[in-house]
Design a protein around this nucleic acid. Sequence first.
DNA 1: AGAACTCTTTCCTTTACTTCA
DNA 2: CGTGAAGTAAAGGAAAGAGTT
Length: 351
Amino acid sequence: MELALSLGGDNTPKPILFLEKSSSSSSSLHENKVNKDVGFCMVLGKACNEGEDEVGRKKRSRNHQEIRSSSIDPSLQLDLIPFSHGVSKNTSSQLSFPWLSQNLATEPAGLTSGPALDMTNRRQLVVVDEAEEGAALSSPNSEISSFQMNFPIYRNGKLINMKRDQCERDRDNNRWGNINNYSCSRISDEELDASARKKLRLTKEQSAFLEESFKEHNTLNPKQKLALAKQLNLRPRQVEVWFQNRRARTKLKQTEVDCEYLKKCCETLTEENKRLHKELQELRALKSSQPFYMQLPATTLTMCPSCERVVTTSAITTINTTTPATTTTTTVAASNTVALHNHKLISVMTK
DNA sequence: AGAACTCTTTCCTTTACTTCA
DNA sequence: CGTGAAGTAAAGGAAAGAGTT
């Protein structure tokens, strides 16, 4: 039984009423765990979201459309459930909030949600979705006042006007355990110090599992993300961020490999360039010292069969055969070339 | 049909936190 | 014990794509 305070957006005043959860047509996380707890349910309807009507709300989330359409009243519902039986009492506050991981352990497992959802799976998704929604909207650390509303939001002492998705990220952060970190809320100065962003390290098991998932597909669709998050007891946002960072790391590594490869290519080409320059200089020197030979029509192209490099042994050969005077120089050059390549050269003589 | 708008997702950059040498 | 480097979780913004009006 919940005390529901409804600030309905339909401009029709809704009375504060007690909801008998067990008889509620909607499925909720609380319903699974608690039957007779007295709660406080605050419904913030469309009036809280300026200009957004029923249709606008329907399009809010493409991915959750089918889930939410079968869900309860889509208006914002703030559940302030102070007590519940059958949940962990380890929390110092004695409050049982669904964003706490130990409470989520009782959620139905096995989120399987393919494109064609059967009614069983659909219902499971509804339960999880509502649980998340409910949890998301009821951070114990903050009066989540900004979601779908234009309430002032304070962060690190500054008044900010948070966008919806940012607020959603924040409520996501606040949802499960990071409740002291950083919130779209009005918080006191003491809390501000403690509200610095805390980074929690994933466990080895979680990292390994995520790694395995990444090997299968490096991007996740929303359903996979939800299932993975549930399986690892992480927030979907955490899974999302992990995959983002993982993709970035992969890309960075690939870039490094590419960079290394290009560096080697560059070195090889530089060497080749030097060699060609040297050969060109030799040929020019030859030309200036022996202009007579340049009038000879004969040229020889020599191609290395393995590297397909055209070398200039041709002229050398020609010179060698035609002018005994230059034999010494040219033969040395040719032998160097052959030694450099260390394999057989095919000579093509053109006349 | 297409422009305008909204929403979601991904990528990229930066920040902040943790771990380790 | 302090410090810097490396690794990484997370924030925030831009851009793209898809759906809606």
